[in-house]
Design a protein around this nucleic acid. Sequence first.
DNA 1: GACCAGGCACATC
DNA 2: GATGTGCATGGT
Length: 224
Amino acid sequence: MTTREKLKRMYDLLEAAFGPQHWWPGETAFEVMVGAVLTQNTNWKNVEKAIGNLKSRGLLSPEKLHAMRVGEVASLIRPAGYYNVKAKRLKNLVDWLVDEFGGDVERMSAAGLAELREKLLAVRGVGRETGDSILLYAARKPTFVVDTYTYRVLLRHALIDESAEYDEIKEMFESDLPAEVELYGEFHALLVRVGKTYCRKIPRCEECPLDVTFEDGARPVRDI
DNA sequence: GACCAGGCACATC
DNA sequence: GATGTGCATGGT
């Protein structure tokens, strides 16, 4: 089986097992951007609480956040953890959005993928995963998102080795799949879903819908 | 009480 | 370029 065939098979099995994931959770593209920063190394449930704090006070907008002090933001996003760091990162992102695009996510999304990615990654606090999440799920650009779950699932199925890096993994998906926003978004969401549930400990891994996918694929030899 | 969760920047070598 | 460290809450 080629890598391309394995990825296709993986997608088909995940889709059959779990169905549409309706990602990214969030009512607006701006909320997606905020969530992308707040979920860094953090459980999504905690992020929901933090976003809820902003939303219930009517502060979940570029204009409102732009006008707030970092300290105020920090106190509201506490449940998301790393709140001092994330308050700065969120402000950096919002200030950038206001400066570059007048706080208009639609205008931001009109920019070209390569150019926009470069600009996003220049914002302090926006790394590759956060940037790609914003590009894919907020700006609707066909760019693949790699996260710890992606890494784990691929490692489990011997599509990468332990030393594989972000860009290498991203490139693997993008060179083997058609550049479609819906496909990329759904695939990534499904990888998170399966990774969360089955991919951590060997006993669960063996119940995974992907476990029998590849005749030449590695069975797990240890916990990740 | 330990471990984990949809990273990132920065220091140091 | 590779490796180590700080950041923090809330659920299991």
